[in-house]
Design a protein around this nucleic acid. Structure first.
Lengths: 248, 248
DNA sequence: GCCCGCCGATAACCTGGGTTAACGCGCGTC
DNA sequence: GACGCGCGTTAACCCAGGTTATCGGCGGGC
């Protein structure tokens, strides 16, 4: 992993949010400069129902937005990938709806919410991108809710793999059909609403069926994309359009 | 139900979105005037993955945002209540993420998306309200996702009743603890991810336990709010803050 | 008036996935 | 090098909730 990627204008995340506008570039760089952080895996940065002070913008590594129920079971509401900006605020904007934590080691910016919203109000292209990101997040949650409510374990897991593969792709993390999810089976289970044991059963069965291959820590190789998409009950192109915020 | 409520300045939904500003008032009234509709129960106004042309603003009656899976099972992603503005667009903003349909008979405005977004850009208070509504919707989905993924039937249903009671309240539809949900048990099941049979089993058990009372078509009376909140695993005040977009 | 379709209510039966427990492996610590 | 711990893997058991079927009531259409 490269060193301090946000300091480089050429970093894909910076380019994504600057959108080539030198004016925005300076303002954005200043926002980042003062709010960059490194966090270790599992570090919790925001607790649900505490004050929401920052939006989160990872440059490298993944975050989770999650809720924990009284018995300690965790449901992951969404992953936050490099380039995504995540605002945990609820209706009463001072309070966070969810916990935010690092999945793996993360380089990110924790930007004060007011500063970020000020940036959006004065930089129209960034604002428009933010609107598309929000809509994309809504689309993802709708898709996942459908599967959480109605679908078999196989469908849920196949869908999660498709979704995360698509989302990981824009920043070139995916070579062909082989890619790395920085997730334990436990965490994947918290995402799709299954126990880690059943995640294991299901993934193994998919591997046995020749649909995909994987090695520890979810190093995934998709062998039969058509079959995987069928299990996930999606059309890859359509899902991409619904779920990936296109820049520009 | 009163006649053509949108034509009256005093209508609570209009007041909510005008926020007393006479300028906004006129612009808002014009938006509504040209886009108002009446729809019968179950009428579908938007199909997922078709072009998203309108935002939906009900004045009376409820809408659903839902997805249908290949076997025809429907998952309700969110309800749209009087005063809520719902934009079904995805990441590629031309396409809708979800179906939108009327739950019961509905009086609403179907406002062209561009016109609505233009209104928001030129009326700051309305824009701020819209941001809070979006955040509230996110908070609701996060809460419901937690329960879809992890919780028992009892918890899911108790939560749904609490949520819908809170949301129905702001427009004075709730007298004490008695209120009406315009839902069949089938529809409630599609909301919480349960079969209608199991919804019935669970609600009956709750009634037998003295927590609530109800009569056909979900005419609900809450007898023991504390017990219901405990089942739902919520604190009512906290949930309200997270989920209800306060005006102003 | 009759018919029909929708909804609530229940019972009987079945299964997908949770739970628990046990084992092996790789990695970091001391 | 020994130990501990997190993770993947598998097997055995069990139950919450799905499925199917049946019945009664109610409202709407003709």
């Amino acid at each position: 992993m490269e060193h301090a990627p946000w300091s480089k204008n050429g970093h894909p995340v910076a380019a994504y949010w600057n959108m080539g506008c030198p004016n925005a570039n300076a303002a954005f760089a200043e926002l980042i400069r003062v709010s960059r952080r490194d966090m270790r895996a599992r570090c919790v940065m925001q607790l649900a129902s505490e004050r929401a002070r920052h939006v989160f913008l990872p440059f490298a590594g993944w975050l989770v937005a999650a809720k924990v129920d009284p018995d300690g079971a965790r449901q992951i509401v969404d992953f936050v990938l490099p380039g995504d900006v995540f605002d945990p605020a609820t209706a009463s904007t001072a309070i966070a709806a969810v916990d935010v934590a690092a999945v793996d080691n993360v380089q990110l910016a924790m930007i004060p919410r007011k500063a970020w919203h000020g940036y959006l109000e004065t930089h129209h292209a960034a604002w428009a991108l933010s609107v598309r990101q929000t809509a994309a997040g809504y689309g993802r949650m709708a898709e996942r809710m459908l599967r959480l409510g109605k679908s078999s374990a196989e469908t849920r897991i196949a869908y999660a793999i498709c979704e995360l593969c698509l989302r990981a792709d824009p920043f070139g993390l995916v070579a062909d059909r082989a890619f790395h999810l920085p997730l334990t089976q436990q965490v994947l289970g918290e995402y799709v609403g299954l126990s880690s044991v059943h995640v294991n059963r299901t993934i193994r069965a998919m591997a046995r069926a020749g649909v995909l291959d994987y090695h520890g820590q979810l190093e995934v190789i998709i062998h039969d994309l058509a079959a995987l998409a069928a299990m996930a009950q999606i059309d890859p192109a359509e899902l991409r359009a619904a779920i990936i915020p296109s820049p520009g």
